[in-house]
Simulated assay, not measured.
Amino acid sequence: MKPGPQLLALLDKQYTSSKLTEMVFQRYDLAFKTDETGQPVLLFIGKKDGQGKIKGERFARQAKGHWDNKGKI
């Protein structure tokens, strides 16, 4: 799985700094952590299990618009 243009547009926005944000995007559950400037730097995408943890994949931002897949979660 690779983040598409719609998801990248969502991740290019500013959010509350140093916070974990959860939302639903299309058919996936998302959670992302932001840095001190409010830019998402760590992304979890997949489906939540019964305990509320996302089962899917983890991505880390390397540069603006570039996310590296860090494996399954």
Rank of each mutant, 00 (worst) to 15 (best):
M1D: 14
K2S: 11
K2G: 09
K2P: 00
P3N: 13
P3L: 12
P3D: 14
G4T: 10
P5Y: 09
Q6P: 00
Q6D: 15
Q6G: 05
L7W: 04
L7S: 09
L7T: 06
L7R: 04
L8T: 03
L8D: 08
L8A: 00
A9H: 10
A9P: 00
A9T: 12
A9G: 00
A9L: 06
L10Q: 07
L10N: 03
L11C: 07
L11K: 06
L11W: 03
L11S: 08
L11R: 08
D12R: 12
D12Y: 01
K13F: 01
K13P: 00
Q14R: 13
Q14H: 12
Q14A: 02
T16M: 03
T16I: 13
T16N: 07
S17H: 03
L20Q: 11
L20M: 07
T21F: 04
T21N: 06
E22R: 14
E22H: 10
M23S: 14
M23V: 02
F25L: 02
F25E: 08
F25D: 05
Q26K: 14
Q26F: 08
Y28E: 14
Y28K: 11
D29M: 01
D29P: 02
D29L: 02
L30K: 03
A31Y: 01
A31W: 00
A31P: 00
F32N: 04
F32H: 04
K33P: 00
K33E: 11
T34N: 02
D35N: 14
D35I: 01
D35M: 02
E36K: 00
E36F: 07
T37G: 00
G38A: 07
G38T: 13
Q39F: 09
P40C: 03
P40I: 04
L42W: 12
L42A: 03
L42C: 06
L43R: 02
F44I: 00
F44Q: 11
I45D: 02
I45Q: 12
I45L: 06
I45C: 10
G46W: 05
G46C: 07
D49N: 15
D49V: 04
G50H: 09
G50V: 05
G50I: 08
G50C: 03
G50K: 08
G50N: 14
Q51T: 13
Q51I: 00
G52L: 08
K53Q: 13
K55T: 14
E57K: 12
E57T: 08
R61M: 09
R61K: 15
R61A: 11
A63N: 14
A63H: 11
A63Y: 10
H66M: 13
H66I: 15
H66L: 15
H66P: 00
W67T: 11
W67R: 04
D68M: 13
D68E: 15
D68N: 15
D68A: 15
D68W: 01
N69Y: 10
K70P: 01
G71E: 06
G71I: 06
G71L: 05
G71D: 05
G71M: 04
K72D: 08
K72N: 11
K72L: 14
I73R: 06
I73H: 06
I73V: 13
